[in-house]
């Protein structure tokens, strides 16, 4: 088959192809006990069990983890960076939440 024919074949095929794609999952890995699970990336899988198995192969080929969490990407609610102002700015002027805000004599120990 020529490359042009191949392309045409593929394009036609694509139109009738089933649209049931494997959903997207987010992968979190605990590198070792004592550390938290950290976001490693994402992958596609038919179900949670397969997502775990794929995560093992994709993200922990070199002993990068002792525990894996997977969660379907659509189940994550994320904040919108455009709202970062009203979400995070209120914390900026609350310096009294930090220990350095308080004036203490230099001689005070263990505080």
């Amino acid at each position: 088959m020529s490359l042009a024919l191949l392309k045409e074949h593929y394009t036609n095929k694509n139109i009738i192809m089933s649209t049931k794609n494997w959903p997207l999952w987010e992968v979190f890995v605990r590198s070792k006990n004592g550390l938290e699970h950290r976001h490693f990336g994402s992958l596609h899988a038919a179900d949670a069990e397969m997502a775990l198995e794929n995560a093992r192969d994709v993200y922990t080929r070199r002993n990068e983890g002792v525990s894996i969490w997977v969660v379907e990407s659509k189940d994550i609610t994320a904040s919108n960076p455009e709202h970062n102002g009203e979400l995070f700015e209120p914390a900026q002027d609350k310096v009294y939440r930090h220990p350095t805000f308080y004036d203490l004599p230099d001689d005070v120990k263990y505080m």
Partner: peptide
């Protein structure tokens, strides 16, 4: 591999 992907989805 299409039938494998479809089968996995049907199984899930």
């Amino acid at each position: 591999g299409e039938w494998v992907r479809d089968a996995a989805m049907a199984h899930a």
